[in-house]
Design a binder for these strands. Structure first.
Length: 935
RNA sequence: GCCGAAGUGGCGGAAUAGGUAGACGCGUCGGUCUCAAAAACCGAUGAGGUAAUGCUCGUGCCGGUUCGAUUCCGGCCUUCGGUACCA
């Protein structure tokens, strides 16, 4: 019987569907394992071969864990809210739900063909009301909570209200927008609106005027991780900074815990580093400088308190509230002009001109509290309002940005740190500042002679002693802006009364997304939801017209899978107690500063309010690499637009330009010239300069390059085509065989033949010459058992460390060996079916049933490894002399070191090679090598 | 600039704890079968040298540790990814 993958795969996919083979329930008798893929946004383009890579890996792992006796939760769903469907809606009027539904169906169809073992009963879609009910519910909980820095966790805002009533802000340490101080009686004297405004300063979901990334083209604000190099990640449109009243999540309250949590999870060092940098913890001091001739003070933040005697000027950010206030009369106009100019620059302009120094003197001076020096205060946009206090003390000798500024405006530069063992030098001859934190203090009064590290500590202590500041930790992490001026997202469960936001009663959830007739913002610039009719509560209070961002729905979806149909709770205590957290999470590294941080925050909050039983959502994370395209090129003559020169023609590169061609017209780097001529109109008169292949035929050879897989580069490989041609099992095997999961690698369709051949060979082992299923019940030989158990060991070890490519190799070796031995014994071939089932589930299921079994291979046990079968009684050691000359020596494995030494000394080869030289020592590495050192 | 990852045949890659570098696959070359082709199977395949070999060189470059280094250490180079006036 031929290996008819088409028939086999159809048959078993249907069987699995009909038998609900992958449905999973809580089973306290079994240990659980939770394997999760990052759910996809269903785009219109469908899947290319890069997308299923991670899904195949997680599927293999899930299937393997099932065979190992685990109760495996392996769900899938869709991140269904997103910009492309909305933009399509604006252009065509098609409701985003319709587009999304269509795309989801296409995704599902493609995924089903690959034979995944998802429990589709647990599917979630972020745009379903049954799902987003809980997104909205979580938002309300965030709104009703604040972060208690003393307890280091979230707490109910009601408790804060009681605290204010009793003692005001006295002794309060809570995360907030800006520090406030008031007494209990002051609190009680406030009206409702004033109190609400105060509380807003503490809520974990809060409304505030914030500088946001505004994208005029998209008509919406964007979070920091949705902006790259001043352009929107989606669409690539310019982004400007703008102050707007927006919802934010106080993720900064969790900065320290997000940092600490990284120590407890099994993620790669590189992704942990990305998150550490994004959180950007820096320890230093905040301190106040008096302003000369005024009773005002300016607060600055510095990590280099040690350099205080090297301060020669101060800088305020242009947006700093003091910027205009302190300007002297004669400088006032210049300051105003500068501030206006700085405000109107787009984010991109600002970035592209990073190296250009600009700024203006305010005319005011600050006083150095340690030596009384008057220090000019400047304004410059190299100081950012969003970090620290928006004001700095500038030490040009030891900070490269301050240095550039000082040089540009001819400000003095004072050295206060010198390299170990070097005398201070004349700063006017310096080409750059000395930023390093290793050195000795000079010119610094009581700090002189100390190391930088010591000086920082000493200075902070001194600052605190004098009451002019204190040690402080700053984080680069910003609060997450949570509103979007879009239609296709979760509505906020918020209404307004007296202009203040209030949460809807939880019984009113979900607050469903209303239908509207147009999807673009209103003429007055309000969000699309402002077009909705009756977008008010029953009392007529207006509802929030913003919607939530993409990351809202994806921040807690992994929890919902545990109990997806629960209408009374996000998930039950029982379900969460059983499934706990994701054991293995597979997905792209591009979410490092977005989804993977928001989810951790979301989860920590749910943990704080007693809902989630684990503090971290994803125990182990694996980032699959990108599959890049292998683009093919033809070379067009510059002089003759219709002439194409084959790659290896001499002198070709001098006067041709490479042009991308569709990889489907290129086989083995040989161009199908007829297809090429028909491909595009401007190529229909193409002529070619061919080269000769080995048989002397004229061929056109294409060049190639590795690039990102994309439609516009004509290098997209569609998985469906491969499934049709080779079957899903071959595709699965080949995607894994391509290389290490975490590594980016180019797609090469040619190599898939190897995996296909392997499966055909594998299949053949089970059939005789006549094509009948034929396995013998004869006892397996020692050799055959050795081959089998070597594979069991390899597969177990390598799967656990997510090294699937080497397992596939091991399968190939195993099948080659068994084929050579003409092994057709049940004792070997039956376990093999179980072992290959995670990788090639269809063929495994077919063979399993041919063995006469009624049940699915899915419910089997992974074969037990037995070391006795591979443990030889002897081992062949290479014996080398000074690492050079060598001979092989077969010795029993249980031989003692002393006996091995003796045997080596007495070997005739040793006598021959060593001659009259002395043996200095003999190094024995068990099962590896014996090294004889002579001299 | 800073942080991270990686550099091994014609190509993808292997070497899991410092121990015979190049497993496995693709491609290429040669062969078997066939009227022929496909499929399948067998053999060769890092470079150089040799009648032949357990010979010489060889894991980005330079140096170090070691009997022995793709692996560890120091210094460079290149590529990719992240991030960027973060004080």
């Amino acid at each position: 019987m031929e290996y008819n993958f088409e028939e086999i795969e159809k048959k078993w996919q249907q069987y699995w569907r009909e038998h609900n083979t992958y449905k999973v329930e809580i089973n306290n008798a079994k240990p659980k394992y939770y394997v999760l893929d990052m759910f996809p946004y269903p785009s219109g383009a469908g899947l290319h071969v890069g997308h299923p890579l991670g899904y195949i890996a997680s599927d293999i792992f899930a299937r393997y864990k099932r065979l190992k006796g685990f109760n495996v939760l392996h769900p899938m769903g869709y991140d269904a809210y997103g910009l492309p469907a909305e933009q399509y809606a604006i252009q065509t009027g098609t409701h985003p739900a319709v587009t999304t539904e269509k795309n989801i169906n296409r995704y599902r169809e493609q995924m089903d063909k690959i034979g995944f073992s998802y429990d589709w009963n647990r599917e979630v879609r972020t745009s379903n009301p049954e799902y987003y009910k809980w997104t909205q519910w979580t938002f309300i909980q965030l709104f009703k909570s604040y972060y208690d820095n003393t307890l280091k966790k979230a707490a109910p805002i009601d408790g804060l209200v009681r605290k204010f009533e009793e003692s005001g802000t006295e002794g309060l340490d809570a995360a907030c927008g800006k520090p406030l101080t008031f007494s209990a009686s002051e609190w009680k004297a406030m009206n409702e609106k004033e109190q609400q405004e105060i509380l807003m300063n503490y809520r974990l979901a809060y409304l505030a005027d914030t500088m946001v990334n505004w994208c005029p083209e998209l008509g919406t604000v964007l979070a920091n991780d949705e902006v790259q190099e001043g352009l929107s990640v989606r669409g690539g449109f310019p982004v400007v900074r703008k102050s707007m009243r927006q919802w934010s999540l106080r993720i900064t309250a969790y900065a320290e815990r997000l940092l600490e949590g990284l120590e407890t999870i099994e993620w790669s060092d590189s992704i942990k580093d990305v998150q550490r940098n994004w959180i950007g913890k820096s320890m230093g001091a905040s301190m106040f400088f008096k302003i000369d001739g005024s009773d005002r003070e300016m607060e600055i933040f510095t990590t280099r308190a040690d350099t205080l005697f090297g301060v020669t000027f101060m800088v305020l950010a242009p947006e700093h509230e003091m910027a205009l206030e302190i300007a002297s009369a004669e400088q006032r106009k210049a300051v105003e002009e500068y501030v206006t100019w700085a405000k109107n620059r787009s984010e991109r302009e600002r970035m592209s001109e990073v190296k250009k120094v600009s700024g203006v003197f305010t005319g005011a001076y600050a006083v150095n509290p340690f030596n009384g020096t008057k220090i000019p205060i400047w304004i410059s946009d190299y100081v950012l309002m969003g970090y620290g206090t928006g004001a700095i003390m500038a030490v040009p000798a030891h900070d490269s940005r301050d240095f550039a500024f000082a040089r540009h405006f001819s400000l003095p530069i004072i050295q206060v740190v010198a390299k170990q063992g070097e005398a201070p030098s004349d700063t006017s001859s310096w080409a750059e500042s000395f930023d390093a934190k290793d050195g000795v203090m000079v010119n610094s009064d009581f700090l002189t002679g100390l190391s930088v590290k010591e000086a920082i500590e000493r200075m902070i202590a001194e600052i605190e002693k004098r009451g002019i500041g204190k040690g402080k930790t700053n984080y680069r992490l910003r609060d997450a802006i949570f509103s979007r001026q879009r239609y296709w997202g979760e509505p906020f469960p918020i209404y307004y009364k007296d202009d203040m936001p209030y949460p809807l009663d939880e019984s009113l959830l979900p607050l469903k997304l209303p239908n509207i007739d147009q999807y673009k913002p209103t003429e007055t610039g309000e969000p699309p939801l402002a077009r909705a009719k009756n977008w008010v509560t029953v009392d007529g209070n207006p509802l929030e017209t913003n919607t939530m961002p993409g990351f809202a729905g994806s921040s807690g979806y992994y929890l919902r899978y545990m109990d997806p149909h629960n209408d009374n709770a996000y998930f039950s205590k029982e379900a969460n107690g059983y499934w706990q957290q994701v054991d293995l999470y597979i997905g792209g590294a591009e979410h490092a500063t977005g989804h993977l941080i928001y989810s951790r925050f979301w989860n920590k909050f749910l943990y704080d309010i007693g809902l989630a039983c684990k503090d971290e959502p994803f125990k182990k994370l694996v980032n699959q690499g990108m599959i890049q395209g292998r683009t093919s090129f033809v070379y067009r003559s510059r002089n003759d637009k219709n002439l194409f020169v084959s790659k290896n023609i001499e002198g070709r590169s001098a006067d041709t330009d490479p042009i991308r061609v569709d990889i489907n017209m290129v086989h083995n780097d040989i161009l199908d010239v007829d297809e090429f001529k028909q491909w595009r109109d401007d190529f229909k008169d193409a002529r070619f300069v061919f080269e000769k292949d080995k048989d002397g035929n004229d061929v056109y050879v294409c060049g190639w390059e590795v690039e990102k897989m994309s439609k516009s580069k004509y290098n997209v490989q569609n998985p469906d085509d491969l499934v049709v041609k080779y079957g899903a099992d071959t595709l699965r095997l080949y995607e894994m065989f391509l290389g290490p999961l975490e590594q980016s690698k180019p797609w090469d369709t040619q190599g898939i033949e190897g995996s296909f051949r392997f499966l055909k060979k594998f299949w053949k082992m089970y059939f005789d010459k006549n094509g009948d299923f034929a396995v013998s019940d004869e006892k397996a030989t020692k050799e055959e058992l050795k081959v089998l158990h070597t594979l069991i060991k390899k597969e177990e070890e390598d799967i656990e460390r997510i090294s699937f490519n080497t397992v596939v190799s091991a399968f190939m070796i195993c099948v080659n060996d068994l084929t050579t031995m003409r092994c057709n014994k049940r004792e070997i071939l039956e376990p093999l079916v179980i072992m290959i089932s995670p990788y090639a589930p269809h063929i495994a299921e077919e063979l399993w049933h041919l063995f006469g079994h009624e049940d699915s291979v899915v419910s089997q046990q992974f074969p037990k490894f037995n070391a006795d079968f591979i443990g030889d009684s002897s081992f062949v050691y290479p014996v080398s002399f000074n690492g050079k000359r060598r001979f092989d020596m077969e010795l029993p494995l249980d031989m003692s070191t002393a006996d091995i030494e003796k045997a080596v000394k007495e070997a005739p080869e040793t006598k021959k090679w060593v001659g009259e030289l002395n043996i200095k020592k003999i190094i024995i590495v068990p099962k590896k090598i014996i090294n004889v050192v002579v001299g």
